[in-house]
């Protein structure tokens, strides 16, 4: 019988303020490649996509969350069993970037290092109105061990790369967890230790999701 969290199933939560375009980002991602297939989902808040990475086939389940501030406290219900989080901000809106920082802090506190974080600066098509500089965002992402990508849901830019990097890293992370767990099992009663190293995991920019881990 298939497990809910089956070997190849990965859950991604979408976090971000209301108007940053997180929904269109995912729609763009899922529909572009599945354009020849009939969408069976009824809407855009739960989307799934199957992708091939090397020898791995993985099923991504993408969970949209309500971005309004009043629903912030409900976040843990969505992200507690997620493998990855895609945090979206609007490059023309500094406040939305500040929100992303809050989310990162919270996620690291609540679920630790095991969740893969990816930050996407959306709406780069509106470059004239840009408020959040790419270098600033990249620097921040690197400091918290998250990927950073610039996207445009409108132009379909950077989206494929974003999800690909996220997926690669989630696969890697799960393999790491699995081997850590089996090591723990064979190692008897060793205390559960999660290796937390912010800076060496995951860079920003290019989809180089295969940096060596240090455990």
């Amino acid at each position: 019988m298939a497990d809910v969290r089956g070997k190849n199933n990965y859950k991604i939560v979408l976090l971000g303020e209301g108007r940053v375009g997180k929904t269109s980002l995912v729609l763009r991602y899922v529909n572009n490649t599945f354009s020849d297939k009939q969408q069976t989902t009824i809407q855009a808040s739960f989307l799934s996509k199957r992708i091939n990475i090397g020898e791995n086939t993985c099923n991504l389940a993408i969970w949209d969350t309500a971005g309004q501030e009043r629903f912030h406290a409900l976040g843990p219900i969505y992200y507690r069993d997620a493998d990855g989080a895609l945090l979206v901000y609007d490059t023309t809106d500094t406040e939305s970037f500040a929100k992303v920082k809050n989310w990162v802090k919270e996620l690291r506190k609540m679920v630790g290092q095991e969740i893969v974080l990816c930050i996407a600066g959306n709406k780069i098509d509106l470059d004239k109105e840009r408020q959040v500089e790419k270098s600033e965002a990249e620097e921040y992402a690197a400091s918290v061990g998250a990927y950073h990508f610039q996207t445009s849901a409108k132009l379909g830019k950077g989206i494929e790369e974003t999800f690909l990097a996220l997926a690669k890293k989630m696969i890697e992370q799960r393999q790491e967890n699995d081997s850590r767990q089996s090591a723990r099992r064979s190692g008897g009663n060793a205390p559960i230790l999660v290796v937390a190293d912010d800076t060496s995991n995951g860079g920003s920019g290019a989809a180089s999701g295969s940096k060596a881990c240090n455990c």
Binding site: T23, S24, L27, Q43, A44, S45, D64, A66, G67, F71
Partner: peptide, 8 residues
Amino acid sequence: SASADDFL
């Protein structure tokens, strides 16, 4: 397409 922002 509707999003979770409208739905919840």
